[in-house]
């Protein structure tokens, strides 16, 4: 446990203080700020319209602005998280510091889990930045905090999955660029995996697709529901990719 935290702390500090992290943070805030403003304006003009038409039922912030914001956040994270994760293992291989880790009294599991925690921590920092937008909307409008928290809890679980995928991509290769590419491709696959079979006529294909569809799970969180099946899905798929990374780390001892 001590080694896990030691590795996690070192990697977290290294990435968070790197220029790359600042550039990515800047990029994210620029994109999110521009888009969030657009969503708010759309929401305002639509509300105005429905008021003028005399309709009593206004639109909910949650279903419009926050949902649009979350999909932009998700899209940005699909591309930026692998860029932050790419260094975790591939850089160690390139710099030969991997030799140090593997000749120290730590297990492959310590290395994989430690690095995953570092990656997840970094992703959480980025996600926290995106959380500030809906949180400060509270100044302008009233909404239910708990629904927002549940929604963010869902996307937080998703970033854990992205982090694990990024770690796995990084464990393959010495080239950071290649690991970035593999990471993005895997993230996109995860996002689209469930979509392809969702409309299938065959019952079991449709239900499997439904279960592995990240979007379907997020819909529950958006409605303010935390379903056990969704929790199991995110935790197990994250653990699966951390496990794969651990196998790759372990395998280098046997080559």
């Amino acid at each position: 446990m001590r080694s896990i935290l030691l590795i996690a702390k070192k990697d977290f500090k290294q990435v968070v203080t790197s220029p790359l992290f600042f550039v990515i943070c800047a990029f994210c805030t620029i994109v999110w700020t521009i888009m969030y403003r657009v969503f708010l304006q759309q929401f305002a003009s639509q509300s105005m319209m429905s008021m003028m038409q005399g309709s009593q039922a206004g639109q909910s912030l949650m279903n419009t602005v926050f949902m649009q914001h979350i999909s932009v956040v998700n899209l940005v994270l699909i591309f930026t998280l692998p860029a932050l994760m790419m260094r975790l293992i591939s850089e160690e291989k390139k710099l030969h510091t991997y030799d140090l880790l593997l000749t120290s009294p730590v297990s492959s599991t310590d290395i994989a889990v430690g690095k995953f925690l570092a990656g997840f921590g970094i992703a959480t920092v980025l996600l926290f930045v995106s959380f500030l937008y809906p949180a400060f909307t509270r100044i302008l409008a009233d909404f239910n905090w708990s629904t927002l928290f549940v929604l963010y809890f869902g996307i937080w679980l998703l970033t854990a999955l992205y982090s694990a995928v990024g770690l796995f991509a990084s464990s393959f290769t010495e080239s950071a660029l290649l690991s970035l590419f593999i990471g993005v491709v895997f993230n996109l696959l995860i996002w689209f995996a469930g979509q392809s079979g969702a409309g299938s006529d065959i019952q079991w294909v449709a239900s499997v697709s439904n279960y592995i569809s990240v979007g379907q799970h997020l819909v529950h969180f958006l409605k303010g529901m935390i379903k056990i099946s969704s929790l199991v899905f995110f935790v197990s798929s994250t653990a699966f990719f951390v496990f794969l990374s651990q196998r790759v780390v372990e395998s280098s001892r046997w080559r």
């Binding site: 290294q14 710099l95 030969h96 510091t97 991997y98 030799d99 140090l100």
Partner: peptide, 8 residues
């Protein structure tokens, strides 16, 4: 090792 395992 041959290449010192240091973090720049």
């Amino acid at each position: 090792p041959e290449t010192p395992p240091v973090y720049g």
